[in-house]
């Protein structure tokens, strides 16, 4: 249970048995727990993982378990969207690693906790709606629904794949729960830790270079779009025409609206509602029309073309750059 602190029974356990919030935050006996909570957040931020705590003795077990709410309080105290995402990703990744060594009963238990509609015996049958919800952002073709064995509403999956789907669900659950409402008592007690993570988050965002875009290959992106991405990541203002071009481009190469949204969330003048609306409009989710980015000549007249590289000279549209690069690399 200590390895899966996000489960409902873990929080029940904490609520039922153990320290009050005040003790957890202030009592010297929980100093180590607080330190572990801090290191959960720090390694998530710096290395993209959560350290594997000891769970051999009951004391270890409790410490590991309790460090989770502390970590969440710290993350919530900072309240930064990038930090929340990175932390949730690391926690979910850790959960996936731990699940692979668990038996089917336990994996079933996790899946139930996450509200999945599934059946499990050797292979897993997962309802297609849950499958879609947690796989649609995976870009590899063998995740597409059309390539699944779907019968009677259920997708047949191997255990590893099911665990991968669960990881995604865990990450979403965590992201949706954060930030928690943190009161003055929490903010006061964890003040130093929150300040440190806040500073670290800012530094991390500074460094967060174009190379970090994850699911898409940065080497395939044409120079104009790369410049726009870099500008956002560095917190520079970009004009409306640039936002439109970039959003349409990212949408067309298959980035989900959520991922595009995340990118913009790094922007200094980020407005949640407006950004969501704009992305929804350009991707066609609101407007019903999917837009494509402007062609090269228009990009040039907007002043968004930083000067062509060799491949640029052979094409007329930024999307072709991405397609051609993709073909070369296979």
């Amino acid at each position: 249970m200590a390895r899966f602190p996000f489960l409902e029974d873990a929080s029940e356990f904490i609520r039922g048995e153990r320290p009050t919030l005040e003790e957890l935050l202030l009592h010297p006996a929980y100093e180590e727990v607080r330190r572990d909570g801090m290191s959960r957040v720090r390694t998530a931020l710096e290395e993209g993982r959560i350290p594997d705590g000891e769970t051999r003795t009951e004391a270890d077990f409790l410490r590991e378990l309790l460090s989770y709410p502390i970590a969440r309080m710290i993350v919530s105290g900072v309240g930064d969207a990038y930090l929340i995402r990175r932390y949730s990703l690391a926690e979910a990744e850790k959960a996936r690693r731990n699940m692979t060594s668990e038996d089917n009963d336990f994996i079933s238990h996790v899946a139930k906790d996450l509200g999945m509609d599934f059946r499990m015996d050797g292979l897993v049958l997962l309802h297609f709606s849950d499958y879609l919800r947690y796989s649609v952002q995976m870009k590899s073709k063998d995740w597409k629904l059309v390539n699944q064995r779907l019968a009677d509403g259920y997708v047949r999956l191997g255990r590893d794949r099911f665990v991968r789907v669960l990881q995604e669900a865990i990450q979403r659950r965590m992201e949706s729960e954060l930030p928690l409402a943190v009161n003055d008592q929490i903010l006061g007690a964890l003040e130093d830790k929150i300040a440190e993570i806040d500073k670290l988050t800012e530094e991390k965002k500074e460094q967060y270079k174009v190379e970090d875009m994850g699911r898409i290959r940065i080497t395939r992106i044409p120079p104009c779009m790369r410049d726009l991405i870099r500008a956002i990541q560095l917190g520079k203002h970009i004009p409306h025409t640039g936002r439109f071009a970039l959003t349409a481009f990212l949408h067309n190469i298959g980035l989900s609206s959520d991922d595009i949204f995340r990118l913009y969330s790094l922007s200094p003048d980020f407005q949640e509602g407006k950004t969501k609306y704009q992305i929804g409009h350009i991707s066609g989710e609101i407007s019903g029309t999917e837009y494509t980015p402007p062609e090269c000549s228009t990009m040039q007249s907007y002043g968004l073309c930083p000067g062509p590289d060799d491949l640029c000279k052979r094409i007329k549209h930024p999307l072709n750059y991405y397609r051609i690069k993709g073909k070369k690399r296979g």
């Binding site: 709606s129 649609v136 597409k144 989710e285």
Partner: peptide, 14 residues
């Protein structure tokens, strides 16, 4: 009911 646009597009692709 709660499926998003991209999720529905997967159904069309299927």
């Amino acid at each position: 009911r709660s499926l998003t646009g991209p999720e529905r597009r997967e159904i069309v692709d299927f």
